[in-house]
């Protein structure tokens, strides 16, 4: 595949931000754009990491802690996979439908790379292990998110998925990346790059829709306030799994608060 731009080239002169709004959205929410983006950081990393990367030596306790942390990731990613696949049918425009389809593939890839990582760490009965170690807070969040999708509530679902969930994952993955073994860190790097695109879509889509619609903004602010405690509990549970004491927790959800502030949902 080659980049499209207007003319099918990838020359330095092509600048998507010079396109008009409709054309810009059509460009950045396309299969072509998606592939150009992921090929840059996944092209030589089958299963999310360089095959030549040397595994770190982990003792039993370190391996067990890593397994516990990683068991949460497929749960969040499966929630995102199921939500984004449900959102394909709710998308109001063709480009946003195409974008959501690219997100479906991204989320499925995340589920796949985390499950494979767990297998490589010696976990044999994946489903049972994940079910026994994943935080219940995440499962509660998943139920809430899928409820929005089932009710056909695009705005609420995009907010919960592409802003809340993606910000949570982005924050946790970034933190974990700084302490993780090289293979896990490289897997996380690719996942983070995807999450940034999803977060960008969520903020962009919601930002446009909320502009000039105070009623919708008020509704989302209310939902945000309702979900805040759950989001914070999710953060706390994950940080505990990462082995941190409460006084060591990074500033909880700074990027999450920044994102809701940018959307004018600070309440």
């Amino acid at each position: 595949m080659v980049g499209t731009g207007e003319t099918g080239d990838t020359g330095d002169a092509w600048e998507p931000h010079l396109l008009d709004e409709d054309e810009f959205l059509r460009e950045v929410q396309s299969f072509e754009f998606w592939f150009e983006a992921i090929e840059g950081y996944l092209g030589d990393r089958p299963n999310g990491y360089d095959p030549d990367l040397v595994e770190a030596e982990l003792d039993d306790a370190e391996r067990d802690q890593l397994v516990t942390i990683l068991c949460n990731y497929p749960v969040g990613e499966t929630a995102a996979l199921e939500a984004s696949s449900g959102l394909v049918r709710l998308a109001a425009t063709n480009p946003s439908q195409i974008f959501m389809a690219t997100q479906v593939a991204d989320e499925a890839r995340h589920v796949e790379v985390f499950r494979r990582r767990l297998e490589h760490l010696g976990v044999s009965d994946l489903d049972t292990t994940i079910a026994s170690r994943a935080n219940p807070e995440l499962l509660e969040f998943k139920r809430t998110l899928l409820g929005f999708v089932d009710d056909g509530q695009w705005d609420l679902a995009v907010f919960a998925q592409n802003v809340l969930l993606e910000t949570m994952e982005d924050t946790v993955f970034r933190f974990h990346q700084t302490t993780a073994d090289p293979v896990t860190a490289q897997i996380l790097e690719g996942v983070i790059a995807d999450e940034r695109r999803h977060l960008g879509f969520g903020e962009n889509d919601l930002g446009r829709r909320l502009a000039g619609d105070p009623q919708r903004r008020a509704q989302l602010t209310e939902v945000r306030a309702r979900l805040d405690p759950l989001v914070l509990r999710c953060f706390e549970a994950t940080y505990r799994d990462l082995g941190l004491r409460p006084d060591e927790f990074p500033e909880l959800g700074r990027s999450y608060l920044d994102a809701v502030e940018r959307l004018g949902l600070g309440g």
Partner: peptide, 20 residues
């Protein structure tokens, strides 16, 4: 099962590409 979900995710993107 998860494997079927993975396949259907690839099919979703294939079909989106065809629409495009």
């Amino acid at each position: 099962d998860d494997a079927s979900k993975m396949f259907l995710a690839t099919q979703t993107l294939d079909e989106a590409r065809h629409v495009e």
